[in-house]
Design a protein around this nucleic acid. Sequence first.
RNA 1: GGGCAAUUAGCUCAGUUGGUUAGAGCGUUUCCUUGACAUGGAAAAGGUCACAGGUUCGAGUCCUGUAUUGCCCACCA
Length: 905
Amino acid sequence: MTDKPKEQPEKISDNPNELPKTYEAKLVEKKWYEEWRKRGYFKASVKKGKKPYTIVIPPPNVTGILHMGHALNNTLQDILIRYKRMSGFETLWMPGTDHAGIATQNVVEKSLREEGTNRHQLGREKFLERVWKWREKHGNTIIKQLQRLGASCDWERTRFTMDEGLSKAVREVFVRLYEKGLIYRGEYIINWCPRCQTALSDEEAQHKELNGHLYYIKYQIENTDQHVTIATTRPETLLGDTAIGFNPKDERYQHLIGKTAILPLLNRRLRIIQDEDIDPKFGTGALKITPAHDPVDFLLAKKHSLEILNIMNPDATLNDAAGIYKGLDRFEARRKIIAELEDRRLLLETKEHMHAVGHCYRCQTVVEPYLSKQWFVRMKPLAKPAIAAVTEGRTEFRPARWSKVYLEWMNNIKDWCISRQIWWGHQIPVWYCQPCRAAGVVTSNKEKKVYSEPGMIVSRETPKECPVCKKNDLLQDPDVLDTWFSSWLWPFSTLGWPEKNKDLEFFYPTACLVTGYEIIFFWVARMMMSGIEFMGKEPFKQVYIHGIVRDEHGAKMSKSLGNVVDPIGIIDEYGADALRFAIISITSEGQDVYASKEKFEVGRNFANKIWNAARFLLMNRTNDKKSKAPKIDDISDIDRWILSRLNHTIQSVTDSLEKSRFNEAVSTLYDFFWHQFCDWYVELAKPSIKTKETQWVLETVLENTLKLLHPFMPFITEEIWQKMPHVGDSIMISAWPKCNKKLLNPKIEEEVGLIISEIQAIRNIRSAWQINPKDLVSVAIKISRDKEMKILKDYSSHIVQMAKISSLTIGKQVTRPKESAVANVGRVETYVVLSGLVDIAMERQRIELALADVEKMMKALAGRLSNQDFVSKAPKDIVDKERKKGEELENRKKRLEENLKTLGE
RNA sequence: GGGCAAUUAGCUCAGUUGGUUAGAGCGUUUCCUUGACAUGGAAAAGGUCACAGGUUCGAGUCCUGUAUUGCCCACCA
């Protein structure tokens, strides 16, 4: 562990036995990652004549530590970047982190709490110093972890949403939108988190279905003995009621018109109003109206000029307006009020009631609809072109169904509450001139018809004085902006905007955004709007949405559930390549991923297989230089076969990558390398391994496969490639393989397919009769056509070798040897001599089973072929194929029947 | 309330213009420590593709409905 590798990666060792027995992922990963960085392979710059390919990373929170979701997300991006880099693009993968306002503030506040203090005792300035210090110390964790994953980001460009350039972009955007009339301030019901004590946007309040109660409460009608019953889920809010209402069409309540109701417990007088928006079918049809604590009620209050009474403090305890309930927490108040209503027989009924309750997305506290003055962005005008961009196909979602989700949200977009009552973030670039504010003097934007308040100054730079009174008694708005107000600028702010520069021109717009569906609204949709608004172009051509990584039971991974599979742990144990390979292979397009530690073993095993196969080839190398391509006529059919398979694989993997079907690419490579190359070609080629031709084929197939694997498994492929004879400095910057169509050879594939089936058939018999793998058997093959005769004769030495045969007879006149078992492959009949071992009953059973199988297929086929509709309507080639198949089956049946007859002879 | 996904071998999942005998990994069974690899090799067992209709010569694949599960959205208090 302690000794460092002293190898010189660039140099090709002369020792043919150079790969260590096992793959040391840790050492190799460290070595190559440092080397790649040192050589500047990750760097991107404006290069005329080259096509750009840009991806911006979804900036992880500075508080983040790498979880499987990150591992998946960033592996996908790295695959695209590495693939495009090898394909000749100038690739930029722009990295960075997000300051994550509330999340980060929460983390630092927690440590303050542990020290027995809080941010208010510390004061704003000292607190912010603390947060910056925290970021210095911990903010790089996730970046380092991404590097261990192998991410080929241009790290020298790393940005942070609160660095100077991005802060400038934020202020620029705020001022521009304000001057366009798209930012305003106002008093509305917003989602309030009483624990974080800040406003949240609608998206940050996550609705969860909860099993609550519906309380039926009696409200008395003034000066009568009548009453009206009202159902509510939040009885404590009745303290803030200022009216009750019903639908004007609701006949049950017509007698209430002109009357006044009495608020239970507090005995306040309540107006009775009528409104179309009140649903007569819910509860009793009568509604208690609490303007300061319910968005619908707030609108009704505005419409009917009702009094608006706030009964809550920011921490969700009740305030003075709550009278004797003052100081109680909202839920305590609820219990107390229910109890008192019960005592006074004002609670008529309590029903179970399922309803959706908003929760803070950062701390899971139940949010409170709360009346307060906040800043908002008017979204409809921004949404319009962002809708068109998707409906007109300039930006494409993958899988396509997400565009529906996006459009649904965009079409129903609401204004965005962007102010937060926390300290960590971009402070709102608005100042108030205290004297002018007090005097009611409007200080800015008198001419433009935009929102303004007395004394208000909206400015890109910190103003030195009031433009009107020239005094410098200015106070900045204490609120900060929503974290997403900086993230939504990410695709261009990271490239230097609002400055105009070559990078922006070259690398914007980006090619593909890779992200999970949980942030389509938070981030993707908003980037679309800002990109179009400020750059005049959609920020990405494609949005690739992947699933969420869950545990093996489908639960979200979380520390508290203890079901986390830690990617760094997997990297430590199995290697980054194993992690990358495995996570991609279990991720099919758009589906959630269910991860467990065992699933990563597949990746480790594959890496091990690659390593050992490469070690074997290098051990048997006859030449330290790159082999020269032999004449195509000099190579064997087996060689042609694997070259055909290789080119097929190149084509298929490239297609899969172009279609973003990553798991398909990975499984194609797995199957090709393991089951075609290792299981068959390498085994078949062993006798000729020292020949020039085989050397060249092995080398060529290995090198090209390593290249195809490189985007998925960058480290092991580089390590092996460097140890192979090679041209160039690194596999990372080598050219992506191209399919050579001339080498695609269906005829050879069919022939070798027959040989493989033949070997498998003999092995099957050996296994069924429990012949020891060491023992050789005598085999006779009867063929009926010259075609098969030639193939089998050509490959007879391979069959002998692979099926462990002592003597092999091939011919048309072959008769069944005594005491032998039979297998049929196509029209070829194979007898394996079992001298002494043969058990007639068992062999009969084997043949009868095969016969039953054939008959079943024949029956199905006969049904199809006798169907006139099929014969006349299906395409000719399909019908021909079926007919041919019928002949084959007929033939096979005959042979099996004959075998059954001659059994025991 | 609206929408979206999923339902295929014991388990976890692939299967994209409908067309051979529906595939993989893990697990299981049998055999093998043979000079690349036991993180391995050879062979095998295992599926009425949730259910019910429909379209079609032909459906795991397309349409309609049902059931179960999961997710997202929504101001029925």
